[in-house]
Amino acid sequence: MRTLPVLLLRLALLVAIAASSALVVEYQNAGDPAFCGVTSGCFAVRMSPWSRPFGVPLPTLGLAAYATLFGMTLVARHKLRHAVVAALAVPGGLFAAFLLWLQKNEIGAFCPWCVAVDISAIVAAFASVWVALRAWKDESRVLLPQRRPVVLAWVGAAMFAVLVPFVWGKYPVVPPAPEAIQALQTPGKVAIVGFTDFECPFCRRMHPALHDIAARHGDHVSLVRKMMPLSGHPGAEPAALAYLCVPVDKREAVADQLYAAEPEQLTHEAVPALVAKAGVSAEAVATCMKAPQTRAELERDKQLFADLGGRGLPFTFVGRRVVLGYNPERVEMALAQELGGERVALPLGAMFVVLGVAFLLAVLVTLMTPVGDRDGGAPSKERSPSV
């Protein structure tokens, strides 16, 4: 088919645009599973150092790049323009192959949406070379109709590819919380379950924010802290053991002391006296910190963090929703959504149907329209080789 390479190129770019747009939503949602769950490969990829080159989310760069390439395919009617598209698409395809290699060998997890982007980029690179080679021999061999309905169909498909994932991202189907998190819920309240490390700088910033949120929402919220001392923070484990040894009604006051302490104060010897400022017995805490039961409870918290797919701190569940990192605004938003009850949820399959119809419509309009000039005339036999 004469139009096959051009259609393949445009469709591959549309898929890359749609998948990149979905990933942009995922990065903005900070853990709320619009398209990926917390235990998915997407989460692992997003937490890797490769996810933000130059501080910019990789999906944002990809969305801009693929949208630009797609726009170039709409105006490429001469061989030099097709060559430029290929010259840009091929490095993109090579970079996509490198990203697939990274997911397999460095990150150890595959993000389905990332894979969709990467494979589409490789297909687009192949198709762009195919188009360029054909155009170099005979430009008419890759010429598509330029009538207004055809152009509008492709522009509309691209707009759908960009915008539809954002619409679905606002109304995700949120799965139930994991059973271990459900077990921490208090009837009639939304539980905020935060995994923390008392020496972690971002956890220290998150503490007053969570305390303030819980205080403002009163009887509608319960705050639960789970311990996840990081190996690079020597004071985190003694602080965690001390926290677990304190009566529940004293834990907020003790948390205030532990988060505010200098890291060098968080030692097995110094922590008991530190928490005693909150009105608990230093001797009782020191004894409890050495007890096997306390160590076992700490290990259960750490195992729960691993089972839930945690990869960084703070790691916070707000009811069924997850907030990654220091993001109190996202906690507020997630809490408002949980307190508001059930809302409209758009199934992911319906998004694929909408996008598929938009893409298919563009293809059908193209195939049903005769090739001709913009005014509908017959194609010229002699075309300028100029750009």
Rank of each mutant, 00 (worst) to 15 (best):
A12D: 05
V123T: 05
M228A: 08
A127I: 05
P57F: 06
F198S: 06
W113Q: 07
L13S: 06
L274P: 02
A183I: 01
S386I: 09
A209P: 02
K170Y: 13
N105H: 13
H233T: 15
G188E: 00
K170I: 10
P5G: 12
I119H: 03
W113N: 00
L143H: 09
L99E: 01
W168E: 11
F43A: 04
L258E: 07
A291S: 10
A83R: 15
A191C: 02
V224W: 09
T287Y: 01
W136Y: 15
V115R: 05
Q146S: 14
Y66M: 12
V123K: 02
C203I: 00
M47W: 04
Q265A: 13
A22N: 04
A255E: 08
A273R: 09
R216Q: 15
G169W: 10
A284M: 10
V24T: 11
P176F: 04
K170V: 10
P57W: 12
V323M: 02
V285L: 11
I107P: 00
L364C: 14
L346G: 01
Q265L: 15
G71M: 06
G156I: 00
G218A: 02
D249S: 09
R383I: 15
A260W: 13
P112S: 06
E299V: 13
A19F: 15
W101L: 08
R374Y: 15
V248Y: 07
K137C: 14
A121M: 10
V90N: 03
C111V: 05
R216C: 09
C203P: 03
W168F: 11
T287S: 08
L348G: 12
D249Q: 12
A378E: 14
A282M: 01
L360A: 15
L61E: 04
V150H: 11
P53N: 06
A30W: 13
L88D: 07
F98D: 08
P263L: 11
A358H: 12
L244P: 03
D219L: 05
A276K: 04
G156R: 08
